[in-house]
Structure formats: structure tokens, C-alpha cells
Amino acid sequence: MRELSLAAVRSMILLGAHPDDIEIAAGGLLLSVAAANPGVRVHYILCTGTPERQAEARAAAAAFLPGAHLSFALHTLPDGRLPAHWGEVKDLLHEAADVLTPDLVACPAVNDAHQDHRLLAEQVPTVFRDQLVLHYEIPKWDGDLARRNVYLPLPDETALRKVELLHASYPSQKARDWWDDEVFLGLARLRGMECRSRYAEAFDCTKAVLRLP
């Protein structure tokens, strides 16, 4: 198993279909990059969300990315209907590319069962052709968890901090029957087992370039 260092990441674009997608799936990545790279530049994009939910997302981004230089593009396309707004989603991705040329892009996985997530995942590589793209996973009722090929081991304190911040940042979601420590830490524990760590987050990367010094 080979390693890829995130120490060189100076800029990121984070893409979510809905508020809380990014932090549920990649909160450990956010905490890790912010700790390794103080002042990292991050452009944070959501496709959907009410004003209340978008306010939660702004607070979550600040909590998960302390010290980062944050910019936001929070859109109000209809939840659950993104495939009917294909062109608008493509436009907002091109707008994001004009804001920042990132070292890393994080977005949903192509095999995600939710149509909003899947559309975003399919369009991202058509816009960000020269960037490293990590496709994250979101546990959900659909049962669409799959094999992944990139792992980020998380120290215990980072995994626990992620869960703590999820609860603090998204109080609107606490009544959901799946919103609990066992779901978040359970998936992290399984992915950790797969990469010889206690906890981890897992991603897909469909294309990467190896460069010699």
C-alpha cells in the first residue's frame, strides 16, 4: 500500500449537493488539511439548501477548516431534482473553476445512489480535468457503500472531533434516525480496518498522475 501526502495541498474546491454532505463524508479530510496547511484556500460550493441549512454549512466550514481562507457559492437549486437542472449544475462548476484552480477537488462518488450526488460526481471530471479529484462516500438508507481505492487514516482524536463538530454544526439533523455516533464512527472504523488504521475516510480516485523529481 503506497501513500499520498496531503502536505502540498494549498487550495481545495469542496462540492456538495446538499448541506452536510461534505462534512459527513470528508470532515476528517477537512480537519487534516487545515491542520497540515494553515491558511489553505478553500472554495466551498453547495447546489441546494434553505437559508437556515446554508447558515449551518457556513458555520460547519469554519469549524472544520480553522484558519482557512474560505469563499462560498451556495446555490438554491431544488433538492432531489438536480438532473432536471443539468445545465445549471454545469454552469456553477465552471464558475467555481474560474474562482480557483485547486490542488484538490472533493465531490460525491459516481456510484452514489442519490441522483443529486451522482450528477455532481459525473460532471466534476468534465470541468476539473487537470486536478486531483477525490470522490467521497455518504452513508445512507440506499445502502450504496462500495469498494474504495483511496484511504485517509484518521487519528482517534480527529475521528472523534469530526463527530463532535457534525453534531454541533448541524442541529437541524439531530432528529433523523440515522444521525448518530455509531453510523459515523462505524463507517470510519470499517474503512480504518481496510487500511490498517483504527479510523479512516475512504474515497475513489479515477485518475492520478505520478511525477518524478
Rank of each mutant, 00 (worst) to 15 (best):
residue 11 S to K: 13
residue 7 A to I: 09
residue 213 P to A: 15
residue 211 R to Q: 15
residue 191 R to K: 10
residue 90 K to Y: 15
residue 60 A to N: 00
residue 28 G to I: 03
residue 198 R to I: 03
residue 184 F to E: 00
residue 100 L to E: 00
residue 93 L to W: 06
residue 35 A to L: 04
residue 134 L to S: 05
residue 20 D to N: 11
residue 61 A to G: 02
residue 15 L to R: 09
residue 70 L to N: 00
residue 41 R to M: 07
residue 30 L to I: 03
residue 82 L to K: 02
residue 102 P to Q: 11
residue 11 S to R: 11
residue 27 G to D: 01
residue 145 L to S: 13
residue 164 E to C: 03
residue 147 R to M: 12
residue 183 V to S: 11
residue 170 Y to K: 00
residue 10 R to G: 15
residue 105 V to G: 00
residue 50 T to C: 10
residue 39 G to V: 01
residue 10 R to S: 14
residue 74 L to N: 00
residue 126 T to E: 11
residue 165 L to C: 02
residue 185 L to N: 01
residue 170 Y to C: 04
residue 26 A to H: 12
residue 15 L to Y: 05
residue 82 L to F: 02
residue 131 Q to D: 10
residue 171 P to N: 05
residue 152 L to D: 00
residue 209 V to H: 10
residue 203 F to A: 06
residue 92 L to S: 09
residue 53 R to L: 10
residue 109 A to C: 14
residue 130 D to H: 11
residue 126 T to F: 13
residue 167 H to F: 12
residue 158 T to L: 07
residue 63 A to F: 01
residue 141 W to V: 10
residue 101 T to A: 14
residue 126 T to L: 11
residue 66 P to C: 09
residue 86 W to F: 13
residue 77 L to M: 05
residue 18 H to P: 06
residue 14 L to I: 15
residue 125 P to C: 04
residue 22 I to H: 00
residue 52 E to D: 14
residue 159 A to D: 07
residue 154 L to S: 06
residue 30 L to V: 03
residue 100 L to M: 05
residue 122 E to D: 09
residue 200 A to M: 11
residue 23 E to A: 10
residue 103 D to K: 11
residue 168 A to Q: 09
residue 156 D to C: 07
residue 206 T to C: 11
residue 199 Y to F: 15
residue 53 R to W: 00
residue 2 R to E: 12
residue 117 H to C: 06
residue 23 E to W: 10
residue 16 G to S: 09
residue 48 T to K: 04
residue 117 H to V: 04
residue 106 A to F: 15
residue 128 F to W: 06
residue 131 Q to A: 10
residue 212 L to I: 15
residue 196 R to M: 15
residue 120 L to M: 04
residue 160 L to Q: 14
residue 54 Q to T: 00
residue 62 A to V: 06
residue 27 G to R: 01
residue 66 P to L: 12
residue 58 R to M: 10
residue 2 R to M: 08
residue 78 P to D: 02
